[in-house]
Design a protein around this nucleic acid. Structure first.
Lengths: 216, 216
DNA sequence: CGTGTACTTGAGTGGGCTCAAGCAGGGTGG
DNA sequence: CCACCCTGCTTGAGCCCACTCAAGTACACG
């Protein structure tokens, strides 16, 4: 993880302006097209990376979880390519772009690490292309696959996105997602979290979901 | 373009084993899961990057054209993540992986260039996610968008992929693609190339296709 | 307790998938 | 040179999933 890298920890030690921030549900870390002024290390929660098409419809192209770095794709461009929006409570550390660029320029090891990050993101995007979106795969299967990808760590807790968000990921409609999720809940594959912070999570029967995710 | 970089041209000059090769339609540059042993700079034609899902069905996640580098995503892994398959006649130069890795290690500038390449590929993949695949967008619109992305340079020539390939890109079926393409041909938006090498190309009415690609 | 937001559920329709013929074109062998 | 086949494209008919439109419901928040 870039943030825990020694050289970047040095950055935190020696410069002011880098601190952890909290973002509440729906808060915007940065907007699509806004001038690039920082990258963010996600320390907790989930962040959706959003693109808007010509018609103004939103499409989620990636989901960031703890350890991911938001905005690094645009670190050497003038403007952000996506909007980054918090889903549930999010904690992130903000690194002003000038510090970030200086450090990358000065430390060769960081470049290799960035390349890894970029290729991991590419792998993830391709994975979405093959497994999650459209194709000829039934919607319920794709919803199951998505839920498995939204797991927190390797337990049975699953980030609970809104039906609209899930639809914007798998390329479907809120109604269709709702029907699939409701059915999973009825069948006991999914349990909605109670109140408070737990509201933003499911408990999932991972084994059963994996069964559904294999199409048939 | 990585291949035209001075340092990589030096590589070509000083080492044997690097030459241009020709591949005919359907030829495999490398297979998915095969041991990584080279990267390829595309000098002409088009190459499809393919992933196979559990059911054995193929899905095309990216298309490489002149100037792109095939296999660099796997340059630091043991095995290729995709298969790379020629569409029509392809000319490419083959760089053995040991040379490639040595050069990247020795020349810091190349790392930055690789990072750019990786991020460009990421952008492209996200672009496919938002514009090309599934969603709620009608198939004819998506076919039009795909055709525009398959343009050779900035003229009216378009790489002519098989209906199966196009279906594997937009996440549809060969029949549906065929219906859309046939209609474009009937309407004169698309002209099939004659014989010989031209068989692998369309001539497209770019302006009209762009109109169709904007949904309505 | 009212209001707003998000989700759920229902009925109806249509786009595209499926299944299944028919049809070019190009390569091969007689 | 032609008949043949083989591969890839086209076209048709029927059906079903999922999108659309539209209520109705749950829940949070002021």
């Amino acid at each position: 993880m870039v943030c825990s890298d020694v050289t970047l920890d040095d950055l935190v030690d020696f410069h002011a302006g880098i601190d952890d921030f909290d973002y509440s549900h729906g808060a915007t870390l940065f907007g699509m097209g806004a001038p690039t002024e920082a990258v963010y290390c996600i320390r907790g929660g989930a962040v959706k990376m959003v693109r808007f098409d010509a018609a103004g419809g939103e499409r989620i192209v990636r989901v960031l979880k703890v350890g991911d770095v938001a905005g690094f794709e645009s670190a050497f461009a003038d403007n952000y390519e996506h909007a980054a929006i918090a889903v549930g409570e999010v904690r992130a550390c903000r690194i002003p772009i000038v510090y970030f660029r200086r450090f990358v320029a000065e430390h060769a090891g960081l470049q290799a690490r960035l390349l890894e990050k970029s290729q991991a993101a590419l792998r993830e995007a391709e994975s979405w292309l093959t497994e999650l979106v459209g194709g000829t795969t039934p919607a319920r299967t794709r919803v199951a696959r998505l839920l498995l990808r939204l797991r927190v760590g390797s337990g049975d807790r699953i980030h609970r996105f809104s039906v609209d968000d899930m639809a914007a990921i798998i390329g479907s409609t809120p109604e269709t997602v709702s029907r699939a999720v409701s059915e999973f809940v009825r069948q006991g594959l999914l349990v909605k979290g109670g109140s408070g912070a737990a509201k933003r999570h499911f408990r999932g029967d991972i084994a059963a979901l994996e069964k559904v995710s294999q199409d048939g």
